[in-house]
Design a protein around this nucleic acid. Structure first.
Lengths: 141, 141
DNA sequence: TTTATAAACGCAAATAAGTTGCATTTGTAA
DNA sequence: TTACAAATGCAACTTATTTGCGTTTATAAA
């Protein structure tokens, strides 16, 4: 995809969600869209050095996540991860080396059943699902 | 269950997992077993005040979680939660007020399929699955 | 029962993720 | 062109979690 077209698309995502199209927010979404795997605030800050402040990154990611533009998750390392997902999916993580792999299915069917199981909740907005194991490489050490 | 019997049972859990049966560890497991819902380190520290140090609580919970004695998860509030589970399950959390509800099914069937989907991982040890929504009460405000 | 030893513990200090207050700038709709 | 809410930058702060290290303790073996 051409740079110009991509930028326009990102601008539309921002507008459609009620955000202003600022250089920082465009850049942050751009980075996530290019990376296509979970990133920490630190990862993103490294790439926007001298362009955008840490606080701005935190605030943008928080806003994006709340609107469902990006997927927010945890891998038990004390950091929050954010990912732009074309197709919603989850991950499996090696508890030894930390390598992450996307897995291409979701709990969509399960989610539909939840309202029946809950008195208190009628609608699910969001979910996180992550698997932990040992990768082949670490297993052979 | 009688107090004595419960204590013996907890002692066995510790022994069977290669841990020493110390007052602190017995007490922490006891607390989790009684509560039967996700607790933070802070929650536990409050209950063991003047008995056990914060660092000890962190270390015990970490050890227990790694052995699979307790379930470790996150609810996007910056804290780590731990739960003793008789029957493995997950939760749905209100993103507005934070109320948590256990949901009685799991992704066991899905897990079985994962090895086929992954080149790098052959065994899953653990997983986390949490749902986020708005509870009835918050929805009516 | 004694003893050796690894596991567990307590404390203080350090680290690091994430937040807040506030003054300033900027995108956008009117 | 303007008005204003949204977004930003910076510094200081909060808070969860970790680390180093010297001490204590549970336990298995002698």
């Amino acid at each position: 995809m051409k740079k110009i077209k991509q930028e326009k698309e990102i601008g539309n995502i921002l507008k459609n969600n009620g955000f202003k199209v600022t250089p920082s927010r465009v850049r942050i979404l751009e980075i996530l869209k290019e990376k296509h795997s979970p990133m920490t605030v630190e990862d993103i800050c490294f790439l926007v050095q001298n362009e955008t402040n840490k606080t701005t990154v935190y605030r943008a990611l928080d806003d994006f996540s709340k609107k469902g533009i990006i997927y927010q998750t945890h891998f038990r390392d004390g950091k929050t991860y954010f990912e732009f997902q074309d197709h919603h999916h989850h991950h499996i993580v090696c508890t030894s080396c930390g390598v992450k792999e996307g897995i291409s299915f979701c709990v969509g069917d399960i989610i539909k059943k939840i309202p029946k199981h809950s008195k208190r909740f009628t609608k699910i907005n969001d979910h996180v699902l992550e698997f932990f194991g040992i990768c082949q490489k670490c297993n052979n050490i």
